[in-house]
Simulated scan of single mutants.
Amino acid sequence: MEIPTELGKLMGIGWRHTALTPIEVRSRALPFTSRPQDLEGVTTPHDDAFVIRATIANYDVARIFVDTGSSVNVLYKDAFDRMQIDQEELQPMATSLFRFSGHEVQPLGQIQLPLSLGEEPLWRTHKHPLHNGGRSVRLQCHLGRPALSSFGAVVSTFHQKLKFPDL
């Protein structure tokens, strides 16, 4: 796929970029099949947000909002403080984050932490940059596309399920 020079430079990929076509990507993707047991414990119809629990840096973290529309992973300050991570470990950030409402939030920084999803025997851990930002009354973490993509995750808000390949 040929990319114009200006766009290529902006994306940091140089003159030429080879990528899988959408058809090739789909053929290698995890098939998402729904079974009646996938809806166990889910009252339908619903339009509930998808909230999970996971392990971040060896801490059990509840109330993690899975957001396929977000381009960042955010660990809210209260959860960060409970993990007793030294703020000096945060890498400074020059960019702001913007909430869905459009309000600007200046994160305290970002840090690479291990994020573990799943249950034995399908337990996977990947290191992810988490932005430390603001306070949230209800959530401890906001999991966006970067983390979901690295796991190869398929999200179904209807089934309230997150599936990823068995490696």
Score class of each variant (00 low, 15 high):
23 I>Q: 14
70 S>I: 03
147 A>Q: 06
19 A>Y: 00
62 A>N: 13
140 Q>K: 09
38 D>C: 09
141 C>N: 03
69 G>V: 05
16 R>K: 15
98 F>Y: 14
15 W>S: 12
45 P>C: 07
167 L>V: 03
103 H>E: 15
29 A>Q: 09
153 A>P: 01
130 L>M: 09
129 P>F: 14
91 Q>N: 06
50 F>H: 15
22 P>H: 09
119 E>L: 13
39 L>T: 14
27 S>M: 08
106 Q>P: 03
113 L>P: 05
70 S>Q: 06
121 P>E: 04
63 R>P: 00
16 R>E: 07
112 Q>V: 12
158 F>S: 09
36 P>Q: 08
133 G>W: 02
81 D>H: 05
156 S>R: 01
10 L>S: 13
110 Q>R: 15
90 L>S: 00
73 N>A: 00
153 A>F: 05
84 Q>Y: 06
54 A>C: 15
41 G>R: 06
155 V>F: 03
61 V>C: 02
68 T>M: 10
141 C>P: 00
8 G>E: 02
5 T>S: 09
110 Q>I: 13
42 V>Q: 10
34 S>T: 04
166 D>G: 04
106 Q>Y: 11
1 M>E: 15
23 I>N: 07
102 G>T: 08
114 P>G: 08
59 Y>Q: 15
30 L>K: 05
14 G>S: 05
5 T>R: 10
138 R>H: 14
151 F>R: 02
145 R>W: 06
84 Q>L: 12
121 P>S: 05
156 S>Y: 07
30 L>E: 07
7 L>W: 09
72 V>Q: 08
123 W>D: 10
15 W>A: 13
18 T>G: 11
99 R>S: 12
13 I>T: 12
164 F>L: 08
36 P>Y: 10
11 M>C: 06
68 T>K: 07
111 I>C: 04
24 E>L: 10
88 E>T: 15
62 A>G: 04
35 R>G: 00
63 R>D: 14
134 G>Q: 10
10 L>T: 13
104 E>G: 01
94 A>S: 11
87 Q>A: 12
72 V>P: 00
129 P>S: 10
88 E>V: 09
93 M>N: 11
148 L>D: 04
50 F>Y: 13
81 D>F: 06
25 V>A: 14
69 G>R: 07
107 P>T: 01
98 F>P: 01
84 Q>W: 04
100 F>I: 12
140 Q>Y: 05
67 D>L: 05
106 Q>F: 15
74 V>P: 03
44 T>M: 15
117 L>W: 01
165 P>A: 01
8 G>I: 01
68 T>C: 13
88 E>H: 14
34 S>K: 11
164 F>T: 08
22 P>T: 12
91 Q>G: 02
123 W>K: 13
72 V>C: 10
148 L>V: 09
22 P>N: 03
126 H>C: 08
132 N>R: 11
149 S>D: 10
36 P>C: 11
24 E>Q: 15
119 E>P: 01
150 S>W: 01
47 D>T: 00
113 L>C: 04
120 E>Y: 11
56 I>P: 02
37 Q>P: 04
153 A>V: 05
52 I>D: 11
37 Q>D: 15
119 E>F: 11
